[in-house]
Design a protein around this nucleic acid. Structure first.
Lengths: 192, 192
DNA sequence: TTAATTAGTTAAACGAGTCAACTTTTAGAG
DNA sequence: CTCTAAAAGTTGACTCGTTTAACTAATTAA
């Protein structure tokens, strides 16, 4: 055996997974999400449906392939923040730093249109964020020595994770993110 | 024709709907949501599956039969509030007045356990609330002469509608609701 | 009375997802 | 180098939610 620690098996598995994800995205963009069956995707990737479902837990997951370990990142942002920096500031920096640039990537314009025009995908994308509410809430609570199910910590986590969905449609996304964080730091004030 | 403006037809339709909802809730509580197929429900209510789906848009909707026109209520609460009362105060009053008593009803203990232990139902219940975010956001914006898609109005609507899900597990629900509204009025502060 | 609506039925189908039994490939130990 | 055991993949059949089409029967309104 050479120095590859991954192994041919793991590489082939990853290749299969990638082939499925690529075929799926291509077909979805071409024909629309609802007009493509998972059999179509499996056929295009030259795989059987059960194999497809061994790699992805459901049809919607085919679309969001790169959205892993966001949860670990969120927890780390809160836990490993600069001393003296507030939890809210750390989260705002993180969101501003990582999220708007990602969404602005021009190759993602079609992708975003696909998600926005497909109710099933909109709902799934939303839950992708709010799914991490428990973990983030626990991290926020831990940062202040509170029990992991502290109510206000859970509330803050939930509100922060709502931000991407809220700011999605805005033209100036960073400003929108900042404005919403402002509500969370200073309280809500009537508009203009 | 006597003085009934409803008509026998409408009454029969309502009866069928009720029979379906009753059968569904009974079976779900007996065996668990996932262990009951919609065919089982249709059989128990002595109707065909297509009839069932003419009355309810999906399996989850069988469980939440009484959750209609919440949206109209929310909009009215914001629009018809006492002069001088802030939007946030009106919403807090509404939530405190209508929601915790409903959930505390002892007959609903089993019902709540059913929902809490079934992921599909938890997700559906959450979306039942957040679904009204657009309408409530528009109402809040209108209350301040802002355009209906005003960002901060939408954000506030979203956050308020998250409150039931956040406070669900708490023992003192009114206090929890008040605490979360406090975040929205004064900004978030670290716990204890 | 008649004509138009509408609730409901049956039978068939579709798509997502799962299951069981079997085949092939790969990894690793002796 | 060989043998074995784990894991990837295949096929085919199946369950379940949901929809469609064609039809029946009841109700309402003219």
């Amino acid at each position: 055996m050479t120095e590859q620690t991954v192994g041919r098996r793991a590489r082939k598995k990853a290749a299969t997974r990638q082939a499925i994800a690529d075929a799926a995205l291509r077909l979805f963009l071409e024909r629309g999400y609802d007009q493509v069956s998972v059999r179509d995707v499996a056929d295009a990737a030259d795989v059987s449906p059960p194999t497809l479902f061994k790699h992805f837990p459901g049809k919607e997951a085919l679309v969001f392939d790169e959205e892993r370990d966001r949860e670990a990142e969120l927890v780390a942002v809160v836990r490993d923040r600069q001393t003296g920096q507030s939890v809210l500031d750390a989260l705002r920096d993180y969101v501003l730093r990582t999220w708007p640039p990602l969404e602005d990537h021009p190759l993602r314009a079609d992708f975003n249109r696909l998600v926005d025009t497909t109710p099933a995908l909109r709902a799934y994308a939303e839950r992708m964020w709010t799914r991490h509410a428990d973990a983030l809430g626990a991290a926020i609570a831990a940062a202040h020595g509170a029990p992991p199910d502290d109510l206000t910590a859970r509330a803050l986590a939930r509100f922060v994770l709502d931000i991407p969905a809220l700011a999605r449609g805005e033209t100036d996304r960073p400003a929108a993110v900042a404005a919403i964080f402002d509500i969370l730091t200073r309280g809500w004030r009537p508009p203009s």
